[in-house]
Write a protein that binds this DNA or RNA. Structure first.
Lengths: 195, 195
DNA sequence: CATATCGCATACACTAATGTCTGATTTAGC
DNA sequence: GCTAAATCAGACATTAGTGTATGCGATATG
């Protein structure tokens, strides 16, 4: 820890957050967004960005960490112990957007951060989804004629599709709140029964 | 047409095809693959590539055109007039991989080719999917409580997820042939009924 | 209100990818 | 087998993104 004569200035903190925020948005819609674009989106100069993050990697790592923290916080509040359909709905509604963004980010930082950080950011939230899917499967509530791996993959695919549609303006927030849980349920309903 | 003293050499034709092929593969797995990587994947020198395509844009355009042609050819043979479930299965089985690749390509060439070419490559195959989805919906066979736009989006999302899983080695060809049609059906089955 | 801190603009070096030019070498067509 | 056509390797110019250095101006903090 460095001893400071004065506290960190408030505008500096605001700008730092604004940068991470802008980076998350820019990179989600264009994985090869430049630092100049991100700085512009954050409403600051390009050089100022380097005052907060000394390299592209440092920035993407910060974005990944924030994203991971947001997901942990968000998912942590969801009760996954009751009825699996209810739990699934709650999980999807609370985190579909975050999970989608995170998945895109993982592609962006693939060769820029350590393999451990990647695994962490990928496996941690995946773990919860996986556990819930397994529980529903063992209870006979979810379909069992497909591998869990594929079910997780299609789960994420649907979240990602919804996020992309919303970003493109072809789907409203309200519609997404309806169709995303609907579609996820449809994928997991046992063939030949109702959901 | 230029009058040629000799026919185009066979190795030149082979190399040109190899380049387009390699480009399709490379760009599908890494949208920002360099021309050097593509040339290497095609087994030729980087400069030779420029002998066939004078710019990156010219190459990506060629890839897009070939992909569009492949899709037209492949989808053209599928009979979409009978039972909608049968037609859906046939459509998915014949073209899920091509449609996925094409969707990735569209992202790659987004700012590199004309908007018309983009629309063409996007709307043409989409039209068939759309038409089939509409027919199934009007017949009451597919679910009607979601917009067709969203159904098309989730349709593509599932194909893309499968292609990515196969590419990553987490899903075999045989498994994909099973789960992709299964999952697409699940998304379109009316809520509360069987598929 | 004083000043350390932060923002910002210009300028510059470095790197990687793109695209061009050349001349030597191989290969397919006739 | 002769020749045109194609491949190839190396060098080079250009461009775009990245990262650094500097000096001035703005501002939040104490």
């Amino acid at each position: 820890m460095v001893r400071r004569e004065r506290a960190v200035r408030s505008d500096a903190i605001r700008n730092r957050d604004a940068i991470i925020d802008a980076a998350a948005r820019c990179l989600a819609s264009n994985p090869s967004a430049t630092l100049a674009e991100i700085a512009a989106a954050a409403g600051i100069g390009r050089v100022t960005l380097y005052g907060h993050f000394s390299s592209r990697q440092e920035l993407t790592t910060a974005v990944l960490e924030r994203q991971m923290h947001l997901i942990e916080t968000e998912m942590g509040t969801v009760d996954l112990s009751g009825d699996v359909w209810v739990a699934l709905d709650a999980l999807v509604r609370s985190s579909w957007r975050l999970l989608s963004d995170n998945n895109i980010l993982l592609g962006v930082v693939e060769h820029a951060v350590s393999a451990e950080d990647i695994r962490d950011s990928h496996d941690r939230p995946m773990e919860r989804v996986n556990a819930l899917l397994l529980r529903g499967r063992e209870a006979g509530t979810f379909r069992r004629d497909q591998s869990v791996e594929w079910q997780v993959a299609s789960f994420y695919a649907i979240l990602h599709a919804a996020a992309a549609e919303v970003r493109a303006g072809r789907l409203t927030e309200a519609e997404a709140a309806m169709v995303v849980p609907q579609t996820v349920r449809a994928v997991l309903v046992p063939a030949g029964v109702e959901g």
